[in-house]
Simulated assay, not measured.
Amino acid sequence: MPETWDYTLYIPNDPRAVTVCRRTLRLILTLHGLIGLVDTAELLAAELVSNAVRHTKGPAALRVRRTPEGVVWIGAWDTDPAPPDPPLPLEEVGESEDGRGLGLVSACAQVWGWQPSARFGDRGKYVWCELLAA
């Protein structure tokens, strides 16, 4: 059975938090021997966290955990309880920076979704994805 763990990084509503989350995630995965997932996981976490920071006004959080089945779960929590807009196919987005985040998540993760969740005493949601650890 794989080692399980669970980390949560609470962040302010600040675009610089995306870089903090990427670097923290890289460190977590490297220290747990999952270096092969780092590049994809960093991309996915950056998209999820940047959406949380860009589209809401409150605090946010990055949560990363490894399940007993060996799946790495990455989620970004934000203070907007509304579901995210459905992802656009990447070929429709083109070179535009807007609208590509969940398209990248959908293309790179095994599965993704969202769920209502409360943190900091605020209602909100997690937008999450899963990566299989080889």
Score class of each variant (00 low, 15 high):
131 L>Y: 03
76 A>D: 03
120 F>N: 13
92 E>I: 00
15 P>I: 11
1 M>T: 10
21 C>Y: 06
70 G>P: 09
128 W>C: 02
75 G>R: 05
94 G>H: 06
26 R>P: 05
5 W>P: 15
29 L>R: 09
116 P>G: 05
123 R>F: 10
129 C>G: 07
82 A>R: 12
69 E>I: 00
51 N>H: 02
105 V>H: 08
124 G>D: 02
2 P>A: 11
109 A>N: 07
54 R>M: 13
44 L>A: 03
48 L>N: 06
130 E>Y: 00
22 R>M: 08
71 V>H: 11
42 E>F: 02
53 V>D: 07
65 R>M: 14
96 S>R: 15
39 D>P: 04
39 D>I: 00
92 E>Y: 07
33 G>R: 07
77 W>C: 03
9 L>H: 08
63 R>S: 14
82 A>C: 00
24 T>D: 03
112 W>Q: 01
60 A>D: 01
125 K>H: 04
42 E>Q: 15
77 W>M: 02
130 E>D: 03
122 D>P: 02
72 V>M: 04
74 I>W: 10
2 P>K: 00
18 V>A: 11
68 P>K: 00
93 V>W: 13
93 V>L: 05
66 R>W: 12
97 E>N: 10
1 M>D: 09
124 G>H: 05
91 E>L: 04
116 P>W: 01
88 L>H: 13
118 A>W: 05
93 V>Q: 12
75 G>Q: 09
111 V>G: 01
117 S>N: 09
128 W>V: 02
35 I>S: 15
46 A>M: 05
57 K>P: 08
85 D>S: 14
56 T>P: 13
33 G>H: 05
122 D>L: 10
34 L>Y: 09
62 L>F: 01
65 R>C: 14
43 L>C: 11
66 R>Q: 15
124 G>Q: 06
72 V>G: 09
67 T>R: 13
52 A>D: 02
26 R>M: 04
8 T>S: 14
51 N>T: 02
99 G>M: 07
38 V>Q: 12
6 D>V: 00
124 G>A: 02
34 L>S: 08
86 P>I: 00
69 E>T: 07
118 A>D: 14
77 W>N: 05
38 V>Y: 09
42 E>L: 03
85 D>E: 14
118 A>E: 15
101 G>E: 07
56 T>K: 07
107 A>E: 04
88 L>M: 11
129 C>K: 01
